[in-house]
Structures are given as C-alpha cells and as structure tokens.
C-alpha cells in the first residue's frame, strides 16, 4: 500500500526532535494510516537518526500499534475481569463466528478489525464492546451481532 509520505513528514516534523517524541509520532501514524507503515518507520529513522530496528521494536512491543492496515471499524471486546466473569468470552466467540476472523485480524472486505483489550475501565457496563467510539454495555452473543450491523 502506498503511503502519502508528505503526511508522514507533516507528523514527524510536527514534533521536537527528541526520543520522547517517538511514541507520540508512532501513535499519530497509527491514527492517520490505521497502522504503522514501513515507510513511516524508515523516514522517522532517517530524520531522527534513531536506528530503524529500535523504532520497529517499539512498534512490535506496544499494543497500540499494528503493522498491517486495520479495517474501517475497530471492534474492541473488553477482556477485563468483570467482563470475563460476565461472559465476554461468549461475546468474542460470537463475533468470531459472525465475521470469521480471530482477534488481531481484519475481515477481507476490511470492514472490521477485531481486538480483545484488557480493560476499558467501564466495568459497570460489563460485558463491554467498544466499536469505534461507541460503548455497548451488557453485550451478549445475541445483541452484539445486531449492533455490528450498524457499521458499514
């Protein structure tokens, strides 16, 4: 996939040239491109003079980053303790069956990416599924499939 290198530069040059900026820049890449592109890492490495391997290691270490493009909508199923106790595993399995993908994967039509996340901190709503910015509390294997239909 071709990446707009001008966008990359806009992001990189928007920050102070310090190692403290690496993580925020990668976060901006993720938001802009829905993943951390190889070209972005290379360019950042060149401009900052930080070894490519180091930046790549960060992109593989932190969960906020994906090295492959994400779908148009991201489904985050909360796997916090309260959600686990209240049936989150059933909810994940139902989504897996419906979309035929596993957590960490993206549907072929790039409509959805499925992720499991540790705790979104809204335990009162357990089990919680966050689709893009929308929180769905009290999710079940039943109602989550209906909610998926709202996203095209």
């Amino acid at each position: 996939m071709a990446i707009d290198i001008q966008k990359v530069d806009e992001i990189v040059f928007g920050y102070e040239q310090s190692k403290e900026s690496l993580l925020p820049i990668l976060q901006d890449f993720q938001r802009e491109f829905s993943y951390v592109p190889e070209e972005g890492i290379k360019r950042l490495s060149d401009i900052f003079g930080v070894p490519e391997s180091r930046i790549y290691a960060m992109a593989t270490f932190y969960k906020a980053f994906s090295l492959v493009p994400k779908g148009r909508h991201t489904i985050k199923v909360c796997m916090g303790t309260a959600c686990h106790l209240k049936g989150a595993p059933f909810v994940v399995e139902a989504i897996e069956r419906e979309l035929k993908i596993k957590p960490g994967q993206t549907t072929e039509d790039r409509r959805f990416s499925l992720e499991t996340v540790n705790c979104v901190g809204t335990c009162a709503l357990a089990p919680v599924v966050v689709i893009d910015e929308d929180y769905y509390g009290g999710s079940t294997s039943e109602n989550i499939i209906k909610n998926l239909k709202r996203y095209t």
């Binding site: 391997s53 180091r54 790549y56 290691a57 270490f61």
Partner: peptide, 10 residues
C-alpha cells in the same frame, strides 16, 4: 554501534 537488530515483540 550499528543497531541492525533489536529485541522484537514481547
């Protein structure tokens, strides 16, 4: 002084 490799993943 090259950093060709790094520890990847976690």
């Amino acid at each position: 002084g090259v950093s060709a490799i790094a520890m990847l993943n976690r």
